[in-house]
Structures are given as C-alpha cells and as structure tokens.
Design a protein around this nucleic acid. Structure first.
Lengths: 233, 233
DNA sequence: CGTCGACTTGAGTTAACTCAAATCATGTGG
DNA sequence: CCACATGATTTGAGTTAACTCAAGTCGACG
C-alpha cells in the first residue's frame, strides 16, 4: 500500500503539505504486532510515538494484585504514546494490541524537528492532547463521582453516539475489557447488565450486542439522577 | 510591578525572545479573584486560558449530589484552562480560587497566532499538556487501583518531594480539600490519618503539619504492597 | 473433542460511605 | 475584648456498593 496515502489519512497530519507528508513517510517505521502482544510498558523510555494504521490498541495501568484499568482504546488513525516525546519522561502506562495491529512509529527527534517547521502540525498535536485531557477529566469524573451503573450508562451513550445514534449497539470489545475500561470487574458488570435488562432499560442480546430500550432512564442513570438497585418505579 | 518580568517568570514562556514577551504582555489581561470565587464553570465557552501569578486555584468536578473531585491545584506560574483553546470545546471542569489570586488571562486568538510564529512556545505548551496527561494517568491509577490509604501515602510522598525531601510536611490545604483531591471524604481521611498515626507511620501534629516517621512502610503503602487495617506488625 | 477464555450466578466480606453529633479553630461584629 | 457564627475536624454507629472467592455454563478454535 501507499505509505504517503496512509499517512495523509491520519487526522493528526491533516493540513500538511505534500512535502511534509513525504518527510513523515520517510521517518515513519512500520510495525506489526499480534493480538495480545505488548508495544511498550510503563516506565520504558519513549523515543517516539505511534499511530494505529489498522487494528486496535489498549493503553492501561496495572496494580500489583494484577487488576487492570484501561485508559484508552485506540483504533485507526489515532496516535498514542506521545507523552514521553514532549515531556521527556518514560511511558506512564502500558500499551498492548487487542488484535493484529499495524502501526507507524515516529522517532522523536525527526518528529520534533518537523513540528518546529510546521505550526499547523503543532496545533494539530495540541488539539489531540487537549482532547485527550478532556477524556481524562470524564474518566476521573466517572471513577470518582459515579457508581458503576452510571459509568456503564454513560459508556452506552458514547457507543450509541459513535455508532450513528443507533439504539442497537455492537460492543466491539469483550465484557472483560469493558469492565476494565469502566474501572470494575466482570462479575459486577454482568450483574448490572442483567439488572438493567430486568428493569427494561436495555435488552442484552447475545454476542456482545445491546439494545437501548429506555433511552430516557439510561440518560438519568448516566447523569446520576437516579439509581438502579431497589424499587425504581 | 513589571508585567513583562512577571510573564518572563512563567515557565511556559521560557525561551521566548524579548519581543514575543512584549507581545504577550500586550495581550495579557490581569484579573484578581477573591477566595472562593469562581473563575469558570464546566460547560462555559473558553475563549482563552489563564496563568496564576499569585495565589492558588482548584480545578474540580462536581456530582449532582454535591460531591467534589479536585483534579488539580495550581499555583504561581502554572497555566490552566488551555483545553478549550486548542480543542475548541467548552471547559471540561470548574475553576475556583482557594485564596485571593492574581491571574493573567490570554485570549485565544492572539495566543494561537503567537504559537504559529514561535515553535519553542508550541513545544513548551506541548510539554505542559503532556505533563498534565501524565498526572492524570497517576490520578486514574490512584482512584481505580489503590485504596484510600495508598492514595494518601502517595500524596505524602509527593508533598515531601515538593518540599525538598523533608520529613516534616506542611499540608498547604485543608483536610476537606485533601479528601476531595484524593477522591474520598473528610471522615474517611480523618480515620486513616489517625490509624497511620497509631501504627507509627506518621505523626499528625496540629495545624496541618504531618511528620513522616516510617518512610519505608509509607512507601509500601503507596505501592499497594501492604495494607493498613488489621495487624500490620 | 478437549481446552481455554468469556461470561454468569451465588455466598460472604469489606472498604468506604452516609448520617449524626460533638469539639475545636478562626474570625467578625458589637 | 467577648460572644456567637461558621467552617474544619473528629468519632461513633449503621449501611451499602462493589469486591473476593467459588463454581459452574457457554462458545470458539486448534
């Protein structure tokens, strides 16, 4: 495939001249990782960052007891691992492929040079990091101020939004991973899904498909206006 | 006081030429807020960002029930509220002065223009945002993977580091605020402090002063290697 | 067809929360 | 300088959301 076209497709690089896209394609290093394979680990020195060309990657933290908290799941066109490039610190988390994934790796020096020459690239990168900060504030809010049913409801809204506002959702990830993304464990997630089904808020079909039945109640749950547990009627 | 000197003091602007510092001092708008006064609210449109000249500001989220989660506390020389400038979205959280605070406000347009002309400013800002992302990963890790005693222990280490590695710490904030920063409530924090004192890990003096007595045990707590509760001896 | 991971359900435990109340600290108006 | 008001802090008692541990069922793949 045409490397330059693949690079031009990456939102981070929108607005760059053909010449700079050419430069990028020169410095980019292609890498393919298998499902379950690690890309980097927390504490590793970061000498460059990555962009997902195809496949999916999870960024996560681990506790000593082995509990995992997923921070992000990145797919096609999304960059990750930029923090060490600009902060000069090691990777603050781990990265692992959720499926067979193709990546471009951009070494730090060449990339920073390009940023120096290209204000629009700098602004694009600032926009990416700002957006990521925004996502983190939402994650912290979820973890600290919402209960698990609220986080799940918020996630379902996010999924629905991402999937053209549809009521019929494809989970895209396993429930084990979803639990880790929501800061809980599979058992708890399972119980809450069945409770939401019993209360007629969703209908959990088979094979990671979920249908939103009562969007209004789901919204109130996501906002923390109501709770699940006992009587909700 | 000399505005240019105050602006030159801000780490974000290190490395800028005198000319650009002059430009910045032209576009900066000074603002003074009283203790407890709000600076912006979540959802507000952001047309610029702020830098603390003196005083302190908390950035926080609120739940419907009124529980607060502090995301950051910023002091002298630190910028905040940049996300809307680069992402074009509303403020994702609230900002309020913890004490009488002097700020510089930098309107978006003029600042973005300056970034376009000044690669080192762009890189400085990228470093600031990257550092902030790093802090958020730590916060998420704390909230999701550690118990409150571990978060407190990690915070005490951070404080000790910030205060020249001293064992004798000044809290700088009230315990109500510390609880909100750690994602818990004052009652819980109070109980844990007294438990840590009983176990000889710290000695909680009066007036927001804490002395680290057993640094090693505190470290194991922060890493989640041990727990407080029952027998720890 | 057997293994492994995903998923579910039951039973018991617990860290942290809510609610209530008392004490202490600070500061202001008179 | 004193009395009260307000907020910070602590302690007790009870509740609970979510966790751990255990045991299965289900489904996909080699």
């Amino acid at each position: 495939m045409d490397r330059i076209k693949q690079i031009a497709y990456i939102p981070l690089f929108h607005g760059l001249s053909q010449e700079y896209l050419q430069d990028l394609s020169t410095i980019a290093i292609e890498q393919v990782v298998k499902r379950g394979e690690g890309i980097f680990s927390e504490g590793d020195e970061g000498k460059g960052f990555y962009v997902v060309i195809s496949g999916r990657v999870k960024i996560f933290k681990l506790s000593l007891e082995g509990k995992e908290q997923i921070l992000h799941i990145f797919g096609q066109g999304e960059p990750f691992g930029e923090v060490p490039v600009f902060a000069g610190t090691p990777f603050p988390a781990n990265a692992e492929a959720l499926e067979k994934t193709r990546l471009f790796y951009f070494p730090r020096e060449a990339f920073v040079d390009l940023i120096r020459k290209t204000p629009s690239l700098a602004l694009n990168m600032l926009a990416v990091l700002s957006h990521r900060l925004h996502q983190f504030t939402a994650l912290v809010e979820d973890l600290s101020l919402k209960e698990v049913p609220g986080r799940l409801a918020a996630y379902l809204f996010y999924l629905s939004y991402k999937q053209k506002g549809n009521d019929d959702l494809a989970l895209e990830i396993t429930k084990v991973q979803l639990a880790s993304l929501l800061g809980t464990i599979p058992e708890t997630l399972s119980r809450i899904l069945s409770k939401m089904t019993k209360e007629g808020i969703i209908s959990a079909d088979t094979h990671g498909r979920i249908r939103i039945v009562d969007r209004e109640t789901l919204g109130k749950l996501a906002q923390g206006e109501i709770r699940l547990s006992q009587s909700n009627f």
